[in-house]
Amino acid sequence: MEQFVDPIREELEGFAVDDVVELFTVDASRIGGAQYLFAPTSVQASDGSYVAPTFGGNTYMVIPFESEGWDFAAGGTLPQPTIRFMMAREDGDSLTIASYLLSLLSSLDDMLGAKVLRIQTLRKFLDDGAEPNPQAHMGIEVYTVARKSNQTPDFVEFQLQSALDMEDVFLPRRQVLNYCQWAYRRALSDGTFDYSDATCPYVGSSYFDANGDVVADPKLDRCGRRLADCKLRFGENAKLPYGGFPGAGKLRTG
Rank of each mutant, 00 (worst) to 15 (best):
Q3N: 10
D6F: 14
P7E: 07
E11L: 08
E13Q: 07
F15G: 15
V17K: 11
V20W: 00
R30M: 10
A34G: 13
Y36D: 11
A39L: 12
P40A: 12
V43K: 09
V43Y: 09
A45H: 08
S46N: 08
D47C: 14
G48L: 14
V51Q: 14
T54F: 02
G57D: 06
G57R: 09
T59M: 06
V62K: 14
F65P: 05
E68C: 01
A74V: 10
T77Q: 14
L78C: 04
L78Y: 15
L78F: 15
Q80S: 08
Q80P: 01
P81V: 05
F85P: 01
M87Y: 04
M87D: 01
A88E: 10
R89M: 13
L95N: 08
A98D: 13
S103R: 13
S103M: 09
L104P: 11
D109V: 11
L112A: 11
K115R: 14
R118V: 08
I119P: 00
L122W: 08
D127F: 06
D128K: 09
A130S: 15
N133L: 06
P134R: 03
E141Q: 10
A146P: 06
R147T: 00
N150P: 02
T152P: 04
P153A: 03
F155E: 06
V156G: 03
E157K: 01
E157H: 00
F158D: 06
L160W: 03
S162E: 00
D165C: 06
M166N: 13
M166C: 11
E167M: 13
F170S: 05
R174W: 07
R174V: 07
A183P: 02
A187Q: 03
A187M: 01
S196A: 14
P201W: 13
A210S: 13
A210Q: 13
D213V: 12
V214F: 12
P218R: 12
P218E: 10
K219G: 07
D221Y: 05
R222M: 00
R226S: 01
L227G: 08
L227F: 12
A228H: 04
D229T: 01
C230Y: 07
G235S: 15
N237C: 02
L240V: 14
G243W: 03
G244M: 01
L251V: 00
R252L: 01
